[in-house]
Amino acid sequence: MSASRASRFNQRSLAPVLFLAPAVLFFLFYVIFPIFQSIQISLYDWDGLGPKTYVGVDNYVELMDDEAFYTSLKNNVIWLVLYMLAIPAGLFIALFLNQTVFGMRLYKSLFFFPFVISQVVVGLVFTWFYDPSYGLLNVILGWFGMGPIAILGDETWVTYGIIFAGLWPQTAYCMILYITGLNAVDPEQIEAGRLDNAKGWKMLWYIILPQLKPATFIALVVTVIGALRSFDLVSIMTAGGPWGSSRVLAYYMYEKAFSEYGFRMGYGAAIAVVLFLIMMIYITFFLVKMYRDEKGL
């Protein structure tokens, strides 16, 4: 009698703990613990090999006076703003593809293709596309008597050039989210809208979009994350150049901490902490929204 009650107790209270344990441990060791470790390292001057010297907030003071840091910060903001274009662009491609035409599955997969290939490949393709002497872009510009523009070699264009390359796969990602969302749109509501004489933009804005709210939310989340961790494209296409004008915070942190000319772990960690704080603003917004939705507020 008492034995079976004990085993039921175990099942009820022990099993969830056991099942959660691996995930919790991994989360603690790979996410939570490194956050505090980074904050700690950012207070030291350390090359990764020799002894660490405690320097207090010196790294942050230096960061405040570092031109390259502000360039990176500015670029991060440009990324965040322009990357949002992927959401409406993805929506319109999804609407366009939401028809019943022969071979539509093929078209859909072709539109989704850029998201499947690696960011490195995307970066290389666009580097060639922008090449000032042989690139397709400048060949096309040449037809109109313009150019050549060295997009990736020009400090005013370079960040936009990289963002444009990044939008290609990101749009595909948002598109697939919306295509799934469109499947769940209630036909009866559309019918009701038609009866009330809604069509075109009004239909989209008042009937379709409200029903796509969950898809929009996810698209926003993945796009913001994609913009903030925009590292691979910068690394492949320009390595932060020309003269550091296409750096973003993630890349600058890598340069300072791990690249050939870097190995200032403390300074790199300080940049990481700043990036973390920026993400924190957004994560807080995200958590509050989730909490409200669950409470039904």
């Binding site: 003269w243 340069e255 000319y261 190995f263």
Partner: peptide, 22 residues
């Protein structure tokens, strides 16, 4: 240049040279 100068100086220096050339 990047073997005679310390790594960090070399990086900032060569970036400056590139900028100067443009």
């Amino acid at each position: 240049f990047d073997r005679d100068a310390p790594a960090e100086m070399a990086k900032v220096g060569m970036e400056g040279f590139q900028e100067f050339m443009v």
